[in-house]
């Protein structure tokens, strides 16, 4: 773990076990004036140590680490630094891993070989509109979010006597369903924007929101499962 200088620019944490890739990434980050490599970690243990010490604006995580899964790092970072944008390195945008990462708390993913796009651009893209959404991811989101999360017991609907805000029960809106259906059939953001007569920026906002919903959805499912097992009762009564 090597700590580097801290400045007013975007602080980037890097978790990658392959030295060559790490080298490229560091080089890419350092080539940009607005980015700064805050720390480098080559294992889950190093990442845990670094996250205890630093508070990065952006965390780039590779999932295959020698002493565990990058998902652990994502979960830890999202708990400890909620404001941190966590991004996963992916070779192919492998959907199941990407979805698992987002459910664990990541904001998006960055393809390792994005042609014609610098790392900075990729990071900025995630910042502004979330990761590019492939048709398969859109299809998965449609599947995962089409139905509202199960609400069986009235108990988990209230936390400390207050009803859970609507924002925390992520069900797809009609517009979101439309967008996801079009993307899953291969339409580009621009085409979707055109077909729905909105700006491409609006579409990007929707995409980012949808990723957020997936993350919330997975959390609310966890809450539901926990409440089913009676784990939350004690906590809620405190």
């Amino acid at each position: 773990m090597i700590a580097t200088a801290v400045g007013p620019v975007i602080q980037v944490g890097l978790v990658e076990d392959q030295p060559e890739t790490m080298q490229r990434m560091v080089a890419a980050v350092q080539s940009q004036a607005t980015l700064c490599a805050q720390f480098r970690a080559a294992s889950v243990a190093e990442a845990r140590e670094a996250l205890a010490q630093f508070s990065p604006d952006v965390l780039l995580v590779d999932l295959g680490l020698p002493d565990g899964s990058g998902l652990e790092v994502i979960a830890l970072a999202s708990r400890r630094h909620p404001a941190c944008e966590i991004m996963v390195f992916s070779m192919f945008g492998d959907e199941s891993l990407v979805l698992a990462s987002i459910e664990a708390g990541a904001s998006g993913y960055i393809l390792k070989d994005t042609p014609g796009m610098t790392l900075e651009e990729a990071i900025r893209q995630v910042h502004s509109g979330g990761s590019p959404m492939s048709p398969i991811i859109a299809r998965r989101l449609l599947q995962r979010l089409r139905k509202s999360p199960p609400t069986a017991d009235p108990a988990p609907a209230k936390v400390s006597g207050r009803p859970i805000p609507d924002a925390e029960t992520p069900v797809l809106t009609e517009r979101e369903t439309e967008i996801l259906a079009l993307i899953s059939r291969g339409y580009t953001y621009a085409e979707v924007a055109n077909l729905l007569s909105v700006s491409i920026h609006t579409i990007q906002t929707h995409i980012k929101h949808l990723y957020g919903k997936l993350s919330v959805h997975s959390r609310s499912e966890a809450v539901f499962e926990a409440s089913k097992m009676g784990l939350l009762r004690g906590l809620l009564d405190e």
Binding site: F92, G116, P135, I136, A138, R139, I183, S184, G186
Partner: peptide
């Protein structure tokens, strides 16, 4: 990538198969 794509579960959606092919081809 196409080989990996073919191994995905498309839950019978031919539209997604075509969509994903376009996604790969667009660049």
């Amino acid at each position: 990538k196409l080989t990996v794509d073919s191994l995905q579960d498309y839950v019978g959606d031919l539209g997604t198969v075509l969509g994903n092919l376009r996604y790969r081809l667009q660049d």
